Amino acid sequence: MGNSCINQLRFLIFLIASLAGAYQSYGFHHLSPKPRVPLFVFGDSLYDPGNNNYINTTPDFLANFLPYGETFFEFATGRFSDGRLIPDFIAKYAKLPLIPPYFQSSYRQFVYGVNFASGGGGALVETHEGKAIDLKTQLRYFKNVEKQLRRELGKEGTDQLLANAVYMFSIGGNDLLAPNPIFSSFSTEEYVGIIVGNFTEVLKEVYKAGGRKFGFLSLLPLGCLPYVRAHNAEGNGETCVKDLTDLAKSYNAALAQKFKQLRKQLKGFIYSNFDFFNAVTQRLSNPSKFQGSEEWMLW
């Protein structure tokens, strides 16, 4: 992993860990001996800890069977991984408990954060509609949590909690991999703009609720995903699909520009945009360099 990637990841961890224990003055000490700054997670299968287990979906959008989960949990939790996910490692480094799925959360856990991510979810409602939880629905769930916190903690306590929290996002890949036919009349630039626009609307709503510290994950090279390569007839499963990878680059560039604009427009907006594209590209080019290292686990 390059120094830029490492520094961005460390910055995100710092956002969470630097305020650890700050709740003692907010009256939350009765919930835990060492309360921590919460982590709210939104996104797709890269972040989904098992939310899809609780919705009416198809087997393709579920990870509740082995070998998922076998190397850490020793059973399938619903994570689309054989072990932990990025938010799990972030929580560990910030000395937080594992952030539970929204559908598995209780009020007592809300002060540590909630994970709303859904495998197959997109920034657009139309992406895998009816099979995954789109970003705007995840926002609605977040607002439900906000309302419950305000009932339990009051306005001041909730305002402080949400302002100190870190909000992580991984979204957009499914919108590009499985575009809805209704968008076929748009150019690539227009379509990317629609996705970024929907994402931005959600970010502004989280900001309006009090969110100030954000962590983003750029798209990886989509054309190099194993199942994309497997269906690439021209490359016999060995070659990345350049058009999809270029599409991911376009999305990443548009989103990076949008984040810069938001930083100017929204007072106190702090963010870390992790270069996942470069991190994955390096590993594909030289996997032995990262095998077994802690940096390998962190991405």
Results as ranks from 00 to 15, higher is better:
71 T>K: 11
71 T>F: 08
71 T>E: 12
72 F>L: 12
73 F>S: 08
74 E>I: 07
75 F>M: 09
75 F>Q: 14
75 F>S: 14
75 F>K: 14
75 F>L: 12
77 T>N: 04
77 T>V: 08
78 G>M: 05
78 G>A: 05
79 R>S: 08
79 R>D: 05
80 F>P: 04
81 S>P: 10
81 S>H: 10
82 D>V: 13
82 D>W: 07
82 D>T: 15
83 G>I: 09
83 G>D: 14
83 G>F: 12
84 R>W: 15
85 L>T: 08
86 I>M: 08
87 P>E: 09
87 P>W: 06
88 D>V: 15
88 D>M: 14
88 D>K: 11
89 F>V: 14
89 F>E: 11
89 F>D: 06
89 F>S: 07
90 I>W: 13
90 I>K: 07
91 A>L: 11
91 A>D: 07
91 A>E: 08
92 K>I: 06
93 Y>Q: 14
93 Y>G: 03
94 A>P: 11
94 A>C: 10
95 K>I: 10
96 L>T: 12
96 L>W: 08
97 P>Q: 05
97 P>C: 07
98 L>Y: 06
98 L>R: 02
99 I>C: 02
100 P>S: 08
100 P>W: 03
102 Y>T: 00
102 Y>D: 01
103 F>T: 00
103 F>C: 00
103 F>G: 00
103 F>L: 01
104 Q>M: 01
105 S>F: 00
105 S>C: 04
105 S>V: 00
106 S>L: 05
107 Y>G: 06
107 Y>I: 13
